[in-house]
Amino acid sequence: MGVFECVVASKMNPTESTEVFTINMASNETLNEPVRLRRDVESQSTKTNFWNRHGLWWTMGIDLPLLLILLALIGLFEMGVIPNHKAGFYCNDPALSFPFNGDTVTSQVLVSTLLIMPIVIVAITEYIFLAADFSQSRILQTCKNTFYLYRTYVYGLLINLCVVEVMKGLVGNPRPTFFDLCEPDAAKTCKGSEFVADFKCTSQRFSSWYQMDSYRSFPSGHTSMSVYCGLFIAWYLQRRAFNWRHRTIFLVPVLQLLCLTYAAVCSLTRITDHRHHWWDVLVGAIIGVASVYYAVIISSNFTYYHSRASDAKSEESRRTMRTLIYDEQRPVTVP
């Protein structure tokens, strides 16, 4: 901290003591902070303009083809065109002998909530808490903010889905309803607790997809994706909407609780419905938590340009005002 000393001599009476006023001034580093913040904002603006000019070519030439290839591979795996490993089973294994009674949370319900719930919550929240100092229309800026955040959400969701699909294909673990869904041919002739490595499903009651899905238990995709969705929304609401100074401080925690309840219901019903083993659900939950951590922290995609620029602008204003206010110490008398 630099110190500026001002010596004030009294002209009225030269014999009077000279007074020294010591004023604490901000250091060079503090004084330069507003300049550095402006440079950071300008640098971010330059980068944003660059990507606005070239983003379309990158998106159409690289990003979109890669996304289509990825979705095609996932679709081929789900349809059985890309085969997966079969881990085998033990004859008369009681852990694989549960009847199939359907899903409490169906795949249709899961997919619809995964895609619709985040974009609705983010759009409403962004519209309510949008700063008033933007030049664009409120609806337009809300759409932009929602797009940036939803893009980050989908980015993490795709990573989650890819990890789950790869693990399912490599492990090939039978589900608790394996015997009911598949009706393996080898189970009709094997005896005791013999291990069967090669088998073929012969069920006439269930479609070929259900038969194939009967040995894709590990890990739980319902769990991983529902945990990812619930935690992502809860994290977003905490970062964007929660503040002790708001008129209501319980609305956001209640919404976060509902998101976590959604994740818990989707996960635990996979065990009560006998669609997964408990270790399948546990590993699926770990994947969901890890994908949220990667999407919003490691990859730093949870922040977006206009928010950073606005925060930097307000911070610059506050720090500039602080540099204009000096702490005047008590006068010191010099003999």
Results as ranks from 00 to 15, higher is better:
Q238L: 06
I121Q: 03
A295F: 03
V111D: 03
L268P: 02
L96Y: 02
Y210N: 13
I82C: 00
C190E: 09
E19W: 08
I159G: 11
A187P: 03
V81A: 03
R216M: 14
Q108Y: 09
I69V: 12
Y90M: 07
M12R: 14
L64C: 04
A87E: 13
T152D: 15
L237C: 04
G192A: 03
V281H: 10
F98G: 01
E33D: 04
L76W: 13
R318S: 13
V296Q: 04
V265M: 09
L324R: 14
E316T: 09
M167N: 05
I286R: 03
P99I: 00
S214Y: 06
R38Q: 15
A123P: 00
L76P: 06
E194S: 08
D63C: 06
V8R: 13
Y155N: 05
R151A: 15
P331K: 07
C229S: 13
G230M: 02
T15I: 01
H276R: 07
C190M: 07
K11L: 08
R319S: 06
T22N: 13
G221A: 09
V292R: 00
P65N: 09
L149R: 15
E29M: 10
L115E: 11
S107D: 14
M167D: 02
Y262I: 05
H85R: 11
G102L: 04
T189W: 03
P219Q: 10
C91Y: 10
F242P: 02
T113Y: 08
S217K: 00
A95E: 14
I69S: 07
V292T: 11
A131Q: 12
T48E: 15
L114W: 04
T15R: 08
V163W: 08
Y127R: 10
F302K: 01
S203L: 03
V3K: 14
M25N: 05
I286C: 14
M117G: 01
S307G: 08
Y294E: 15
